[in-house]
Amino acid sequence: MDIENKDLKNDIAYEANDALERELDDDELRAQLRTAYDALEPDAEAESRMLGAVMGAQAEKGETPAGASETGTTSELADGLGETPAGASETGTTSEQGASTHKAAQASVPKKDMKPWLIGLPVAACLVALAIFGMNSLNSGSSAALNSSGVVAQDKAASTAQSAESTESAESAEATVATEAAQSAGTQAAEGDSAEQGSATGENGAAAESPASSGQGGDTPVSSDSPAPADAQVVPAASSGHATTAPCEAILPDGSKLPVPLTDGQPTPVDPAQGEGSTNVGVAVIVASNPELERVCDLFLSPSGQYLIRFNDDSDVLYLVG
């Protein structure tokens, strides 16, 4: 009985399914739907975009089958370097490009040919970085060499003041420069000659107008607590282009040079009476074959027209110049 019922159920279900299948098999509806679906298709541009993206994705996956293309990115890289591989599209093969463009690139840009560019780019970047680093090192090296002689303070002063000139903080920058230069030259504000130094400031300001100066506003007021009237406008020998052939020379604010006579390897002091009535006319830069002598010192002009210099470590003693 159960078996009969089961068979009956199956028969009924089969009949029902069969009837449904026949009902569904609607040729008219099928034809209409085919017509409707056939009318629905992507435009050629969209198809090309999709193809480009798909092929690009496959190439990126690194499993490029024979005849498949490289990625658009790779072609763009080649373009970016200004060397489009022979036959490749000028515009690369981004997904926005047409299928034909894509094929052109894929046919002529084998994967192996592109690898050097991928490697070359970071290498080129490293070389440029090294070159820049090297130049910076050279510059700092020359500065360091000067620094050992104490002259670089002026160099720094000049460059700092130059940069400060273009800003509204030039005044404070020069004050800083003055401090640095004074410290480098050993100026002792505590020695009580700050008034004298102060008078020299104005003169140094005038000297700033000389061709050898870096054109800074030497007459910019220096802050009152500045220990010395250091003249940022005196350009050291290295940066002003003066050759130092003599054992010891003084470079004057106007850029001219005067020999400094040496006695036993040291500047020759003058009789205090000879220096009496001398006027401070700025600072001079001493350049010498002996680095110990190189420094910035005060420059005086005696009533007789003789230039004298005064080292800051023994401020009472004047030395002969010229």
């Binding site: 992507p42 999709m50 193809l51 798909v54 092929m55 496959q58 499993e63 089958p65 005849g67 498949a68």
Partner: peptide, 16 residues
């Protein structure tokens, strides 16, 4: 399998 399958051909056959 992927290498055996030409994705471009598959795409062209089926994109629409």
């Amino acid at each position: 399998m992927l290498a055996d399958m030409d994705i471009e051909q598959v795409f062209k056959r089926n994109v629409k």
